[in-house]
Amino acid sequence: MTFKLIINGKTLKGETTTEAVDAATAEKVFKQYFNDNGIDGEWTYDDATKTFTITE
């Protein structure tokens, strides 16, 4: 399955996707992406659209 990440950061904005077997696996991938890029904020997940959103 394809999961999308929408980034609404102070310095970084955009979208990316990842292929994962489930939302929990995608969450781990995206959290690592947050850490690697110094993004910290509030994030949500919409199961209907398989979209994670992080807002700094």
Rank of each mutant, 00 (worst) to 15 (best):
G38R: 12
V21N: 13
T44I: 08
T11Q: 09
K31R: 14
E15L: 03
D36F: 09
V29I: 13
G9H: 12
D22G: 01
T18A: 07
D46M: 03
T53F: 07
T11M: 08
D36E: 12
D47W: 05
G38V: 14
A48K: 09
T18C: 10
T18M: 12
F30L: 04
G38C: 11
A20E: 03
M1G: 10
E27P: 00
T16M: 15
T44P: 01
F34L: 15
N37W: 15
F30E: 00
A23F: 09
T17V: 08
W43I: 10
F30P: 00
N37I: 15
G9Q: 07
V29M: 08
Q32W: 05
F52L: 01
D40M: 14
A23I: 06
K50H: 13
K10G: 10
F3P: 00
D40P: 07
T2G: 03
Y33P: 02
G9R: 06
M1V: 12
E42G: 04
T17C: 11
A26G: 01
T53D: 01
K28D: 05
D46Q: 03
T55N: 09
W43K: 00
G38T: 10
A20C: 06
E27L: 15
Y33S: 04
I39C: 09
N35Y: 13
G14P: 05
T51C: 03
A23P: 07
K4Q: 04
G14L: 15
E27W: 13
K31S: 06
L12A: 08
L5S: 01
F3G: 01
D46W: 02
G41E: 03
Q32L: 12
T16Q: 13
L12M: 11
I39N: 05
K4L: 09
K50D: 02
G41R: 04
D36N: 11
M1R: 07
L12K: 05
A24L: 10
K4C: 08
K28C: 07
L5R: 00
T18K: 03
K4H: 13
I39A: 05
V21Y: 07
D40A: 12
T25P: 00
T49A: 06
I7D: 01
I39R: 04
T25R: 05
K13G: 08
I6T: 04
L12T: 10
T49K: 05
G38L: 11
I7N: 02
D47K: 08
T18P: 01
V21D: 08
F52C: 02
G14D: 10
A20W: 02
G38N: 12
T11G: 08
D36Y: 06
K31C: 05
A48D: 12
K28Y: 08
W43F: 11
